[in-house]
Design a binder for these strands. Structure first.
Lengths: 223, 223
DNA sequence: AAAACAATTTTGGGCAAGCAAAGTTAATTG
DNA sequence: CAATTAACTTTGCTTGCCCAAAATTGTTTT
């Protein structure tokens, strides 16, 4: 059994892994993600490497082995199913469930997780639109673009939001930019680095301006 | 914040405390309850005593301070509310929820606990009939007797079962001796140390024989 | 009262994780 | 190319929690 600490390292290695599969995740980024000093990350990764859950190349970085990836996906499955349960069944606000799930993900049993999955009818996405890996460890891909690179003036639906901080999600809430919301991108200003978005908020169309940095966090699907 | 370990010690000190309030809980019993060696219990209790959560008298034993008792009751409240949630909302079998709650009790936030309490409509008892302390740390007492000392031949209702082991509870399940079940005690045999109990099981009255030791685990309330 | 016993405490040591700070490498810049 | 810098690793130390075994204490028993 992997300790809570190891589960966290594996999860962060998975989430922070570079887009290019051949690349290694640097220790600096990992230590930031886990929230420990670089030295701690190095020695911990050495230990996890001894358990064959990651490959570790000194001065290059770290990368999950297939076994490590399966474990990471299992943790992620727990995390995301719990988030959805907290929102749908327990009625918590989606801005607060991330922190809660960070703790719960390490203690729910397989049996309880199976019940949660059943009650939610085997959902594919969590409240933020993040995909829930299957029990077999498969991630169902949803290929879609962000508010930064989707076509202009076409109706789309928000599918996923890449930010878990409670404050940001509360802002998203009041703007009506939740997953499922119908929006269209009216214009982009490359000089000001802003995007103008039209949202239907309580029946009325509203205009909203977002920076490129924030626009990039919203994934949309053309409807 | 008390660590998970300290929470467990406090909970066990509360649950194992001797009936007589003036008595101390011996270190031997505590170490058994927590599942550590006596030496470990001694040093841990020393530490908890430094935090003024217990009084510790070498060679006599240990006893909760008011602050320690409040913390213990808070853990117990979490444990029992979680058990009830797992049975009522998540549909787990009541024989398996104890083990699950042992883990969860240390990680649910106050906010989540409040939601659980609300969803269950502020319940007073968990699936085993154990009282759920209030948020203010008050235990509502239900004064009732056991199958060992209740009057003969009068209809009663099972109110509480003092055993959390999954195997025992599964046996209780098949006998129909669950909390809420209507039973009456037909006779007691002090020589054989057995009690004969009548249960209404799937519409039919059935006789059941229990040992004194087991009978003592069932609390009943006259209806 | 002395001896034996049971319960408890002390001692010494281990493992998992963490930090701070000193020491290495590798990359960047002058 | 040498010097500086940034990233990384190593080293030494701390804390929390645990165990095994030796030492102590209080209580029985002889």
């Amino acid at each position: 059994m992997a300790s809570r600490t190891i589960e966290n390292y594996l999860k962060q290695i998975y989430l922070s892994r570079p887009a290019d599969e051949t690349q290694w995740l640097t220790m600096g980024k990992l230590s930031m993600a886990v929230g420990v000093t670089p030295g701690t990350a190095t020695s911990m990764v050495r230990a996890i490497s001894d358990a064959h859950l990651v490959e570790y190349e000194p001065r290059a970085g770290v990368r999950l082995t297939p076994a490590g990836e399966q474990l990471a996906l299992h943790v992620l499955r727990r995390h995301r199913l719990i988030e959805l349960l907290l929102v749908k069944v327990l009625g918590l606000d989606w801005s607060e469930v991330h922190a809660e799930a960070e703790e719960l993900e390490h203690v729910v049993s397989d049996r309880l997780l199976a019940r949660i999955d059943e009650i939610l009818h085997h959902p594919a996405f969590d409240p933020h639109g993040d995909p829930i890996p299957t029990a077999g460890g498969v991630v169902r891909r949803q290929d879609c673009c962000t508010v930064l690179d989707c076509p202009l003036d076409s109706p789309t639906r928000i599918a996923r939001i890449l930010d878990q901080s409670a404050e940001f999600l509360q802002y998203v809430n009041v703007c009506g930019l939740l997953p499922g919301a119908e929006i269209s991108v009216a214009s982009r200003n490359h000089q000001a680095q802003t995007v103008e978005v039209m949202v239907i908020k309580s029946g009325e169309k509203q205009a909203l301006t977002l920076s490129f940095a924030v626009a990039e966090k919203f994934f949309v699907q053309t409807t």
